[in-house]
Amino acid sequence: MEKVLILIRQTAFRDKLFRLVQYASRLLAHLLEVKRLGGLDGLRARQELIVKLTRLELHLSTARKLLRLGNSADSIYAALRSLHIKNDVHRFTITMSRIASAIFLLIDHWLWVGRVGLAQVDKTKWSSISNRFWLLSILLGLTRDAYDISNYCQASGGLSRALRDRPLLLDTAKNICDLFLPVVSLNYVRLSPGAQGFFGLISSALALAVIAKPSLKLMP
């Protein structure tokens, strides 16, 4: 119980927990919309639940933006620390990914200001820019994952060692799931809200697992 309380006190853990519920709400709302879930009496009850789930998703999204206020500065400091990584590929991909993440979060702060009505914000414009930097951060992360997997393959002549590296495996799976979210928002591909909810749910669960068990975090 003490470990659970320690985790709940962490802002990063609460953010990912809210994210998991947020995308789970999107998935459930879509399933109800296409009538894949039964047990509800009548169309009215189903529509009311869909509205509640949609509102919950919006409220959690806003809460997460509030929780992340200031995280852009943390990403910049993390990028500065990664400049000391010896491996050239790791240094470039990790540093640039953290810089892209910092810009994404900074714009996210601005979007939060607009959402709560503190200023007039062009949501469409800034959301598009934010998603581009989010996508760049993910692509850089996947580049680093592919580089590590390639090194394993060259050293062992197969994927067996890479598949046994749980931090690398989890990081790759999380990045692949996350990749679908900004590309859909940018209209590069089309996915149903249910598919988006599913990928967001999986990536959030993987992120929570890493926070709960730091030994699963990919280093450096």
Rank of each mutant, 00 (worst) to 15 (best):
A119Y: 11
Q120F: 12
V121Y: 05
V121E: 05
D122V: 08
D122W: 02
K123R: 10
K123I: 07
T124H: 13
K125G: 10
S128D: 13
I129C: 05
S130N: 13
S130C: 14
N131Y: 11
N131D: 13
R132S: 13
R132Y: 13
R132I: 04
F133E: 05
F133C: 03
F133P: 04
L135D: 00
L135F: 02
L136M: 14
I138F: 05
I138V: 06
L139G: 01
L139F: 04
L140M: 03
G141S: 06
L142K: 00
L142A: 04
T143L: 13
R144K: 09
R144H: 08
R144S: 05
D145R: 01
D145I: 02
Y147N: 09
Y147W: 15
D148E: 07
D148I: 06
D148Y: 02
S150F: 15
S150Q: 09
S150V: 10
N151R: 09
N151V: 06
Y152F: 14
Y152R: 06
C153E: 12
C153P: 03
Q154E: 10
A155E: 13
A155D: 12
A155Y: 10
S156Q: 14
G157Y: 12
G157H: 08
G157D: 12
G158A: 10
G158R: 13
L159T: 11
L159I: 06
L159D: 08
S160L: 07
R161Y: 10
L163T: 14
L163A: 15
L163K: 15
R164V: 05
D165V: 01
D165I: 01
R166H: 09
P167I: 08
L168D: 04
L168M: 02
L169W: 03
L169V: 09
L170A: 08
L170S: 11
D171W: 03
T172A: 06
T172I: 01
A173D: 04
A173I: 13
A173N: 06
A173W: 00
A173Y: 00
K174T: 14
K174P: 02
K174A: 15
K174W: 07
N175I: 10
N175H: 12
I176Q: 03
C177Y: 04
C177V: 11
D178P: 00
D178M: 07
D178R: 05
L179G: 03
L179C: 02
F180I: 03
F180Y: 09
L181W: 11
L181F: 07
P182I: 01
P182S: 04
